[in-house]
Deep mutational scan, measured.
Amino acid sequence: CHSECLGNCSQPDDPTKCVACRNFYLDGRCVETCPPPYYHFQDWRCVNFSFCQDLHHKCKNSRRQGCHQYVIHNNKCIPECPSGYTMNSSNLLCTPCLGPCPKVCHLLEGEKTIDSVTSAQELRGCTVINGSLIINIRGGNNLAAELEANLGLIEEISGYLKIRRSYALVSLSFFRKLRLIRGETLEIGNYSFYALDNQNLRQLWDWSKHNLTITQGKLFFHYNPKLCLSEIHKMEEVSGTKGRQERNDIALKTNGDQASCENELLKFSYIRTSFDKILLRWEPYWPPDFRDLLGFMLFYKEAPYQNVTEFDGQDACGSNSWTVVDIDPPLRSNDPKSQNHPGWLMRGLKPWTQYAIFVKTLVTFSDERRTYGAKSDIIYVQTDATNPSVPLDPISVSNSSSQIILKWKPPSDPNGNITHYLVFWERQAEDSELFELDYCLKGLKLPSRTWSPPFESEDSQKHNQSEYEDSAGECCSCPKTDSQILKELEESSFRKTFEDYLHNVVFVPRKT
């Protein structure tokens, strides 16, 4: 048989008469490798580009789960590009990614509803959504962080984005990388972005840091009482949809009607710091009717980097990364020049730590249904340095008659930039024990000054392991946590139920 035959053949030295091919099969003959313009397919066939392209389009058009959109890589027609490569849609070739590779997620039936953290986790790592997304989240724990972890990498949506009755959302900033909504599939009414009845939605994105392009379709905003109209108009300008909307697409009466839409800028007039305090004062603000001013709200939190936005980490279910302080308005003076500047002394802060701070007014709604208010920009203030805590785990070892090696770990709280350490030492008198000992005694162990690591005695271990207080009263049991108490109650309830079950099964009433 021919060298490319495997198993047997019907005619000697003829690659077209093989029972099976050793390498690849091409047009009725066995070959060692697939010549151009053919590609290896499933490690035994040679196919042309049209064959591989037909497989790709067949799966793409069917949208069946589990099928493969075949691509070409290293002269092979394979189910998908290997790690580190992405497909070129024009020629199906796998090309190296520039940075992290995109991950295209194809949605069944063309859309997916995100109504819980669990459903959001199914899209973790996706960068391109081939379909439409509907966000409908009523509640949950730590929602802002969970949504950002699972949806934060999405850069492109081919269909539309719909935010509907998501009472738990305060902001859409968890879509931190969303840059493009194509609108290839539109919501009824030709809408590519749809926001309806979101009672706590206050911000779409921080438009000073976020760009969003909507290729096709219109915007729809109705019944978002805490979303200011200025935020919607800003989205029109940034996304390129200005002029597409009709009169009733953006409701003037049901958007922002319960919001404090600040239209003035508060400026800080005085800032002073110490290692654990920050004193702030800002310019006074009074609405047209000074009785509408209820006070100020001061927001602050630790910020290692200057990239904080107002609604980071917030949701309507209680999660809030900001510390909020309510401040009463100052006494009002008739003389504008003698107006008191409101302020606040922030206490209990960490030394040498940068804080993000902003302040906003708290006002009631005027009778004319106009909203007044003022808010400052987010500023960054760093507390002063102070003395560091003591170095940890000092170790001293003498390696000769004239040297001592000293080692330690950095302090747990540096409280500033540590530039150097101060080492103090003092000579001590020799131990009298060394002169009084009889060095001729056998088995004498000389006193040693070398360091030995501390260890816990058996008594201390027994005390720590004991669940009861000892007789001397030195140790006591740790208080039980809520989960331990709940577990004990469940076990007790189970024992009672099981005992009742045994009584009912074992003891049967005697027939009379």
Results as ranks from 00 to 15, higher is better:
residue 122 E to Q: 05
residue 158 S to G: 03
residue 132 S to D: 05
residue 169 L to K: 00
residue 346 M to D: 00
residue 106 H to F: 07
residue 399 N to Y: 07
residue 131 G to W: 00
residue 179 R to D: 03
residue 199 Q to F: 12
residue 331 L to V: 12
residue 395 I to S: 07
residue 351 P to W: 02
residue 175 F to C: 03
residue 154 I to Y: 01
residue 131 G to D: 01
residue 103 K to M: 04
residue 261 C to K: 02
residue 191 Y to R: 08
residue 391 P to Q: 02
residue 211 N to D: 11
residue 333 S to N: 01
residue 291 R to Q: 15
residue 219 L to F: 07
residue 267 K to A: 10
residue 339 Q to H: 12
residue 303 A to V: 13
residue 140 G to D: 06
residue 124 R to F: 03
residue 108 L to H: 13
residue 275 F to L: 13
residue 174 F to W: 06
residue 133 L to Q: 00
residue 401 S to E: 11
residue 103 K to W: 04
residue 351 P to K: 03
residue 291 R to P: 06
residue 281 R to P: 00
residue 158 S to E: 04
residue 138 R to K: 09
residue 165 R to F: 15
residue 173 S to C: 09
residue 287 P to E: 07
residue 262 E to M: 04
residue 209 K to Y: 13
residue 199 Q to Y: 06
residue 248 N to F: 15
residue 180 L to R: 09
residue 328 D to F: 08
residue 277 K to N: 15
residue 128 V to I: 11
residue 254 T to K: 11
residue 107 L to I: 06
residue 410 P to A: 15
residue 140 G to L: 14
residue 147 L to I: 05
residue 122 E to S: 15
residue 323 T to R: 04
residue 330 P to L: 08
residue 145 A to S: 10
residue 163 I to H: 01
residue 251 A to T: 12
residue 212 L to C: 02
residue 160 Y to P: 01
residue 404 I to C: 03
residue 207 W to V: 07
residue 138 R to W: 02
residue 360 K to C: 08
residue 137 I to S: 02
residue 263 N to R: 12
residue 109 E to T: 14
residue 106 H to Q: 12
residue 271 I to Y: 06
residue 319 S to T: 06
residue 246 E to H: 12
residue 234 K to T: 14
residue 108 L to T: 13
residue 157 I to P: 00
residue 138 R to N: 15
residue 400 S to D: 15
residue 342 P to H: 13
residue 347 R to A: 08
residue 347 R to K: 14
residue 370 R to Q: 06
residue 257 D to M: 15
residue 220 F to A: 07
residue 244 R to M: 14
residue 129 I to N: 00
residue 325 V to T: 15
residue 292 D to T: 09
residue 256 G to T: 01
residue 195 A to C: 15
residue 134 I to T: 15
residue 335 D to P: 03
residue 286 W to C: 14
residue 123 L to S: 01
residue 339 Q to N: 15
residue 150 N to H: 13
residue 287 P to Q: 04
residue 333 S to M: 06
residue 307 N to G: 03
residue 244 R to P: 11
